[in-house]
Design a protein around this nucleic acid. Structure first.
Lengths: 341, 341
DNA sequence: TTTTTTATTGTTAGCGCTAACTATGCATAT
DNA sequence: ATATGCATAGTTAGCGCTAACAATAAAAAA
């Protein structure tokens, strides 16, 4: 169907090799011959077959990127960052959506290997992802973990400082008067969840507030999880005065549950979370959050990966921890502003 | 580096062809042989090379998806929809971000062809994308346009009914009392912009309000464009009482400009736009919008493409127009609710 | 003039896989 | 006993491209 190098060569009256030389800009081709080949290429609309080239050279110029959810406003910028960095490096990105499903994640990893991507950028679903990722590692396959680390693993990663972020967020809550702070997090199966819980505890300890197990709610870190967990929070007596949710999806569910109960933020309940959301930030800047440099995370992650692929990285694994920003708005105390303006 | 079929065959003491048969589940292999091959596969951690397979069969099981911006909350769900549909069909998605740049878009298209994707899903940058897309079409390459049509083109597409959406949005504005409504749109170079302007005009005409050219502002449909255009709106005397922005990015810029001028929505200015944003919808449901079924658009688009690829589509181009939802909240009149609750 | 160099082009082989065919051995039919 | 069929395995070739080497002709050096 598609025109091949041979078609071009035939039309130009040269051998395939000569045509190949023209295409790859090798010298040692007469000007006149080059012109003829270029003419044939233009006339036939020839596009080189990267697949064949890749088979030959063992280089596909492609990396894989697996994220749990492209729709999540945190991962959008991560994808963009990685994609832009890849393009600059002459690579393309095979994007996969694991949907937070371990089985799907494994399927995609095998798939990408089978596609002979030269490296893999993974934001792992959970600690259990390591089983799958380990079998990759055995072959010293270029791999960089994004956003979450994996226990017992020793590979490059780039994450944000969740513990410090959570600590500052909770410190802020405490500083405006909150003493009973509920925390919605995951089933203790991600590094981010663990670190954020750690920061939560640190902030409490620093303020001399005893840590209470019953204020921590384990759930899936999506909208429905946030909703259900918040319902549990609202069953508590006395009610906490603030909720700290582990990410930007849970906070949506939390808000839903609060609204259903007729509770207003921040009048009746303080609410903070990880991840800023651009639209929210501009259109309705009331949520106090920890903002993570998502695009940087994706971009730097890709850079780490390309260094690995190029063999410029050395055997030691590199660990990058990015700092986060506390953005104080008006979702934890009534004093600081009007919600929509 | 990676283990090949030959390694497997050698270890199992059979020919490559026999090993290939086992891998592809062909019959005509003795049970005992099959077991030996499977053992070898497991021991060597063999993963078939899809590249080689693709070279041979001319099938890469891959489609390309080009969107102007993955970060845009409209395209996130589009990507997810397409990706999910692709997975179900046994295909993977090569995702590219054209960033609204025609040059980049062209580069990606060539790239994807070179990668021998079996089909292409494109949300085109603008009408000018057609030059590039046409050269594709000549080869009857499987192609489905998403979200925007292209003039003079005759290929499958799936879009939302922008004219009707815009009409209903503006009708709503009029019904709550607005008479002077500014409209921010693009440089008349996308079908969506044209259709939305058409709907805007229709709604005005139906209400007997004369159309005024000077109320329509042309700009880039991103945040900065919305910001600048809104500044122009605010230079008008008398001020319009409402603004209708063409999408979810421009509305962000509009809000910024309004806030800078100390104007409150909806008290001082009504504000509506295309595209609902999930976080905003739940956390701060004040913006009245037209919601487009983005995930459906991506999913159905992929389905159309797979039918094309499979040759089940027929020569006539298929055109799907999805209906949109008007979601009335409180951004155009003061009566309908408290902004954040 | 003859040899050597240089510039240009062609040939061969193989990347990993599979379609299409061939070969082998054994069971059944004639 | 020979023919026929079937199950199982192997061989050959080629997908489109390029590395490595070989060949040719013209130019430069001897």
């Amino acid at each position: 169907m598609a025109t091949t190098l041979n078609d071009v060569a035939e039309r130009a009256g040269v051998s395939a090799m000569t045509a190949s030389r023209v295409i790859n800009g090798r010298h040692g081709v007469a000007a006149e011959t080059q012109r003829r080949v270029e003419k044939a290429i233009a006339e036939l609309d020839y596009v080189p077959n990267r697949i064949a080239r890749g088979l030959n050279s063992q280089k596909t110029q492609t990396i894989g990127l697996i994220v749990p959810d492209v729709v999540n406003p945190f991962f959008g910028p991560v994808v963009r960052g990685a994609e832009t960095a890849a393009r600059r490096a002459g690579y393309r990105v095979l994007l996969c959506n694991s949907e937070g499903d371990l089985r799907l994640e494994r399927e995609y990893i095998e798939d990408l290997i089978s596609h002979r991507v030269e490296g893999l950028l993974i934001a792992p679903v959970s600690d259990d992802s390591r089983h799958c990722v380990f079998s990759l590692l055995r072959g010293s396959f270029p791999l960089v973990l994004l956003d979450r680390t994996l226990p017992e693993s020793d590979c490059d990663y780039i994450v944000c400082d969740s513990a410090s972020g959570a600590r500052r967020l909770v410190e802020h809550l405490i500083s405006v008067g909150h003493r009973t702070i509920a925390h919605l997090t995951d089933a203790d199966d991600t590094s981010t969840g663990r670190e954020r819980l750690k920061g939560y505890k640190e902030a409490l300890a620093a303020a001399g507030i005893p840590y209470r197990e019953e204020l921590v709610f384990r759930t899936t870190v999506d909208q429905i999880g946030g909703y259900r967990a918040t319902q549990q929070v609202l069953a508590l007596t006395p009610l906490p005065t603030a909720i700290f949710t582990v990410n930007n999806m849970t906070v949506v569910g939390a808000m839903q549950a609060l609204r259903e109960r007729g509770l207003s933020v921040p009048r009746d309940m303080g609410l903070v979370c990880f991840d800023d959301v651009e639209h929210l930030a501009v259109l309705s800047p009331f949520l106090s959050v920890i903002n993570q440099p998502a695009e940087t995370l994706g971009g730097l992650g890709a850079q780490l990966l390309f260094e690995r692929i190029a063999g410029k990285a050395g055997p030691r694994s590199r660990r990058i921890v990015l700092q986060t920003d506390l953005i104080v708005r008006s979702s934890c105390c009534v004093t600081s502003g009007v919600p929509v303006r």
